[in-house]
Simulated assay, not measured.
Amino acid sequence: MTKHLEIEQQAAAWLARKDRDGWSAAEQAQLDQWINSATAHRVAYLRLAATWSKADLLAPGAAGPGALPARHDHAIADGARRPLPRYSAWRIAAAILVTVGTATGLFATRASVSEVRYETTLGAHQTFALKDGSKLTLNTATLLRARVSQTGRTVWLDKGEAYFDIAHDAAHPFVVISGANRITVLGTKFAIRREAGATNVVVVDGRVRVENGQIPNQLPVILVKHQKVVATSVKMLKSDESDAGIEQVLSWRQGKLIFSQVTLDYAASEFNRYNKKRLVLADAEAAKLRIGGSFDVDNVSGFASLLQRGFGLDVLETDDTITIASRRPRPAP
């Protein structure tokens, strides 16, 4: 799918959601945020809104859902007349007449109107509530899509890391797709981190089943409280986690990085997940240095200063990078 078509489908999904009963102020705020986050979003929404309005004009008395909201006005008018139902035969026929060549893409979107996209920027984390009562907390630079209805609950973790607090529903298991991995739960708390070539799952409470679609004949791995699995294309590595280990894995929810005698190379890679200013290690000796402690995720300059003062490393800071190097003996004058 092209980026353009993806944005078109997102805009159509927003229009379809707004078209139903029960549109809330919280949903309006999410729509405002999506529209104002990119010019392409605003253009797609305006164009499709105009298409729906033209379709509605073919039905006497119908009013379209697509009026563009003001950037700061989230109020919803009580008792406002609702447009035709989104699956109205008249609306579908009218849309065919108006959209002509774009009908195929539009109907593909309307077939999956319940899919909602959630995304965080570099260095941010944010909590979202799903309509089934579940809560998702997204870590830095994370993209997640959710489709939750009365018949099923599925989430796709396209990139990044998320913490899940899932509402119990024995009739509708909650499924998370991360690459080739499928994580299934009924009601529990767990975190998933998707990296290049691996998916990490750690359970805080409850029970989780992890299936790896990349390994032939691989049996599902069952995780319970304080257990973890790392799923790659060749293996499923399961382990137990201590209270301290769980705290370290989830410290990002408090805006912290907690290290327990990790290499500086690893610590730098973690800081680089959250900051535009990158930590660069100039030599192998500096990279293998062991470090521990608790640090604010956005205080990369303070971390570098600690390395300089506490470990005697050389630090060179520019607008974009902080280069860390082992201190070399200075030649005698």
Rank of each mutant, 00 (worst) to 15 (best):
H4L: 06
L5M: 07
E6L: 09
W23S: 02
A25L: 01
A29N: 04
A44P: 03
A44N: 03
T51I: 08
A55L: 03
D56Q: 06
L58T: 07
P60E: 11
G61M: 05
G61F: 03
A63W: 00
A67W: 04
R71M: 10
H72F: 01
D73C: 12
A75F: 08
P83L: 14
P83W: 03
I92C: 05
A95L: 10
L97A: 12
A103D: 10
A111H: 09
A111M: 12
T127S: 14
K131P: 04
T137A: 11
L157N: 08
K159Y: 09
G160L: 08
I166F: 04
H172Y: 13
S178F: 12
S178T: 15
S178W: 11
V185Y: 02
V185F: 05
V185L: 13
D205H: 15
D205Y: 12
E211V: 14
P216L: 14
V229Y: 00
S233Q: 00
D243E: 15
E247I: 10
S251A: 08
G255T: 07
T263A: 06
L264M: 02
N275C: 10
L279C: 08
A282V: 01
L289W: 00
G293M: 05
S294K: 08
N299V: 02
S301A: 08
G302M: 00
L307G: 03
R327F: 00
